[in-house]
Amino acid sequence: MTKQHIHSIILSAAIAGLCLSTPAFAQVDAEEIFKENDCHKCHHPTKAKKGPSLAKIAAKYKEKKLDEKEAIKHMTAGKKVELDDGTKEDHKIIDTKDVAVQTAVAKWMLNR
């Protein structure tokens, strides 16, 4: 292996390290995470589906002065939620434990 190769590898590793150390939320496509987790099947941006619309959720949080931490609790606790027909279901839990990703998704939702 030549010196140039070694320098190249060190430089690549340094760049990779830099990328990995960037805060996760900076790279998160929150909308894509939301949809990858199938959240959109129940929560439409404006229409009521099985769950309330994102607009309604955002308005409610604003009114009650709640922030993304409360939204994260909701998407990670798997608590029972009451549906329009009066039945109750376990809320789906988002498939990530990365708080930065959860925060990005929560912020995206509450900014609808």
Binding site: K35, E36, H40, K41, C42, H44, K49, K50
Partner: peptide, 11 residues
Amino acid sequence: SCHDDPKEEQR
């Protein structure tokens, strides 16, 4: 009624 995203099928 649930699968209504424009990119639903791709996803």
